Simulated assay, not measured.
Amino acid sequence: MTEQRKNGPMTERTDLAKIGLTAELIGPLQSPNPIANNNHRQDLQEHSSKLKNHIAVIATNTHDLKETGFGSIETCRLFYDALKEKYQTVTFHEISSISSLNDIVTSRPDLVVLCSKYFLDVSNNTKTWFSDYFSKHAIAFTGSDRNCLEFDSNKGKAKTAIQNHGIATAKFFQACPDQFETEDKLPLFLPLFVKPIDAANGNGIDENSIVRDFESYQSKVKELFESYGADVLVEEVLPGREFTVAIFDDPETDSRSIMPVEIIVPKNEKGDRILGCAAKQQNHELLRTITEPTLSAVSELAGSAFTALGVKSFGRIDIKLDAEGIPNFLEANLVPGMTPDSSYFPRACSLQTGSKSKTNRPSAMTHSEVALKIVELGLNRINTLQQVG
């Protein structure tokens, strides 16, 4: 049965008016734009080819902090830019309050990229460790957990753990001002190397860090204690070559990439090669690949330290040779700097000379590949945990 219109056929204008529109508002019908359609199809294809994971990148202003993580907000945005090329949903969050973290929890990302270790609330001088926060909310994150990150924040704690595993590291002690009345009371013989126990990027290290007399020792300990508000680390001087080692570790595929490079710092006015804050800011140090037998010795110690400290996915181990040419552990950097042209982790990755067709040595990686690898390892850990569960 066909429904009849009581008032005859309605005009197009009447039909449009019935739904609240007019012909003038809509305008004349237009033919499809083939260029726009092609662009739209291309966008859809690119979007569909990307992985469907939701990745949240979080950063905080670390300019005035002792520990700077990946680096500036601009450096962290480079990670965000790289990830957008592979993943459908990538968000960037500059953390300035706890409420910013709550917003991330509400969105439930698959993985959070931690560009720094914690958020410091300057109003009450309290730290919120990102790894603790997201663990509490059952959200996966890149890198190591809080317990392991303590080895990055406390060099003395890291060296103690390394010693307990029988791994070589320079003899050391922790000190505060006026702890020792005379030179003969010092636990180690001069000269000694004095540095902050909890700072990064060479902060607190300068041409006066090697102390050769008791007066210099007292002065440097007092300076660092007053500047950083904590005991200082005092070590035997290691006179040999210095190295930094970038490491990627993937238990899911049982693979580990160990990428060492040598750091050569120009001598200062005292004739010492000291990798301090000024040297790093000037970016005059030379990084170069190393050869056997040093390559194997440095790589072995770096891998052993990485395992002993329980590092997850990625990190950087710093090493120096003693007077006999034996590698010694210096410190661990578990949220290492990622500035492309100056930070040691991406530079070490870029200098590797292996071939992708050969698995004995890692091949060179671009900064974008480093960012993607860190996220890949984080997602692989989720898969492993799900399989175990």
Results as ranks from 00 to 15, higher is better:
243 F>N: 04
87 Y>L: 01
224 L>V: 05
41 R>S: 14
83 L>R: 07
1 M>K: 10
169 T>Q: 04
342 S>K: 08
141 F>G: 11
209 S>L: 15
194 V>W: 03
304 S>Q: 14
270 K>L: 10
121 D>L: 00
69 G>K: 01
71 G>L: 01
164 N>M: 08
75 T>D: 01
355 S>P: 00
325 G>F: 13
212 R>A: 13
44 L>I: 09
163 Q>T: 15
250 D>A: 11
217 Y>T: 03
50 K>L: 09
130 F>Q: 13
272 D>H: 08
45 Q>M: 13
330 L>C: 08
158 A>H: 01
230 A>V: 05
270 K>F: 13
239 P>E: 12
263 I>S: 06
138 A>S: 14
163 Q>G: 09
150 E>C: 05
71 G>V: 00
294 T>S: 07
35 I>D: 12
162 I>H: 03
167 I>D: 02
167 I>E: 02
53 N>S: 11
266 P>S: 08
151 F>L: 06
387 Q>W: 01
252 E>S: 14
350 S>C: 01
237 V>P: 03
46 E>S: 12
93 H>R: 09
68 T>K: 09
381 R>C: 11
70 F>G: 00
347 R>P: 00
69 G>Y: 00
135 S>N: 13
360 N>L: 04
268 N>K: 02
5 R>Q: 08
144 S>A: 10
328 N>F: 03
320 K>T: 06
304 S>A: 14
228 Y>L: 08
379 L>S: 11
15 D>A: 10
35 I>K: 10
87 Y>S: 01
84 K>T: 07
143 G>P: 12
261 V>D: 05
198 D>T: 06
315 G>A: 07
1 M>D: 06
40 H>P: 04
77 R>F: 00
338 M>K: 04
343 S>N: 04
137 H>S: 10
222 K>Y: 05
325 G>D: 13
159 K>R: 14
205 I>E: 05
173 F>W: 05
105 V>G: 03
237 V>A: 12
209 S>G: 06
28 P>C: 09
93 H>F: 13
40 H>I: 14
96 S>L: 02
137 H>M: 11
350 S>G: 02
216 S>H: 14
283 N>Q: 04
179 Q>E: 14
11 T>W: 13
146 R>P: 00
22 T>C: 04
39 N>Y: 12
21 L>I: 06
85 E>M: 10
95 I>M: 04
344 Y>I: 00
139 I>F: 15
382 I>M: 09
136 K>I: 09
335 V>R: 00
268 N>D: 14
257 S>R: 03
108 R>N: 12
208 N>D: 13
158 A>I: 10
141 F>D: 04
274 I>S: 04
375 V>T: 05
82 A>G: 07
280 K>Y: 04
317 I>A: 11
12 E>H: 08
41 R>W: 06
275 L>F: 15
186 L>W: 07
269 E>C: 02
368 S>Y: 06
108 R>E: 10
123 S>D: 01
387 Q>K: 08
379 L>T: 07
311 V>M: 07
386 Q>R: 12
386 Q>E: 15
188 L>Q: 06
96 S>T: 01
382 I>L: 07
197 I>D: 06
42 Q>C: 11
314 F>M: 11
65 L>Q: 12
64 D>V: 01
176 C>V: 14
372 L>K: 07
90 V>F: 10
230 A>H: 15
205 I>V: 02
36 A>R: 06
114 L>E: 01
157 K>D: 00
254 D>E: 15
279 A>M: 06
160 T>Y: 07
276 G>Q: 05
334 L>N: 11
386 Q>T: 14
291 T>L: 02
256 R>C: 15
